[in-house]
């Protein structure tokens, strides 16, 4: 089902709000990871406001779809998406990374029950997502599992163990999304560890690979639609994105991986997102 005009407008608006939440949270905490949160904000908006079967009024429905943020440092965009979807009050977002908060620096399922898996140590979330998909198949539940991975995260060996597991177990109820923004803390992923030929790597492992522009809501929604038609193997949506997307001075800058904007930078960024001067 492609997006209607209204649906698309909703998603664009939600992504804009989520981006603003991300920036406010990180600025308020004076720490956190804006770059990789902004890069996948459009995908998160499609997941939480279009694709996934979720009900904030019944958050523990065993048949709900599952989302795992394997790149756990993008916690701000996960929290913002959950709050904007109605799982908890938006005001709580400002407690991010502060003492006694449910919004831990990296997602904790014990601290915040709407988090499906505690993540932060890279490479593990995709395994956990596989586990959810395996269990859903055992119980013949209609659950679909979505897992967001980072491109730098592909340097973790466990990711490739998990890539084998998903194919071996024929997890066609699993969709992995690669937030392919090309940057990691120490620079570009090519400089740090020559991550060339990524689509081919996953195809060689047996995944169904879909390559899209990760900032185009229509393309994102269409990719998830296509994924649902694939039987007998998992889907990898390789979403080409821009790190720091939406904020001129953060876009394509590795330095904004894990740095909080100063008050005046926040003001500038919010203005840009509201359509003001870049």
């Amino acid at each position: 089902m492609s997006l209607t005009k209204d649906e698309k407008a909703t998603i664009v608006e939600k992504a804009r709000i989520i981006r603003k939440d991300v920036l406010r949270m990180v600025a308020s905490a004076e720490s956190g990871h804006p770059g990789g949160s902004l890069s996948c904000a459009d995908i998160m908006a499609v997941l939480y406001f279009h694709e996934m079967r979720l009900d904030p009024k019944d958050p523990k429905d065993p048949d709900r779809d599952r989302f795992v943020m394997s790149k756990g440092h993008a916690s701000p965009v996960l929290y913002a998406s959950l709050a904007e979807r109605g799982f908890f009050p938006v005001e709580e977002l400002m407690s991010f990374r502060k003492i006694d908060s449910r919004l831990q620096g990296h997602p904790s399922l014990k601290a915040l029950p709407f988090v499906e898996m505690s993540t932060g140590s890279l490479g593990q979330g995709i395994s956990a997502a596989n586990g959810m998909a395996i269990a859903a198949k055992m119980d013949k539940r209609p659950v679909r599992v979505y897992v967001m991975i980072g491109d730098g995260e592909m340097e973790e060996g466990e990711l490739w163990e998990a890539a084998m597991t998903a194919v071996h177990r024929k997890l066609d109820n699993l969709v992995a999304i690669l937030d392919y923004n090309g940057l990691q803390i120490d620079g570009s992923i090519e400089e740090v560890k020559s991550l060339t030929g990524i689509p081919g790597r996953f195809r060689a492992f047996g995944w169904h690979v879909i390559e899209i522009n990760g900032h185009d809501p229509d393309a994102i929604a269409a990719a998830f639609d296509e994924a649902r038609t694939i039987k007998g193997r998992p889907c990898m949506v390789i979403a080409k994105t821009i790190k720091g997307k939406g904020v001129s001075f953060m876009e394509g800058e590795a330095g904004w991986h894990g740095k909080a904007p100063k008050p005046e930078q926040l003001e500038q960024a919010l203005k840009e997102l509201d359509g003001g001067e870049a």
Binding site: V68, L109, G123, Q124, G125, S127, G131, A135, E158, H168
Partner: peptide, 20 residues
């Protein structure tokens, strides 16, 4: 899980979240 202990433990965690 094959010879992949790290993957096994994190996959186990995912299965456990599903009530197993």
């Amino acid at each position: 899980m094959g010879i992949a202990e790290q993957d096994m433990m994190a996959t186990a965690a995912g299965i456990a979240t599903m009530g197993k």
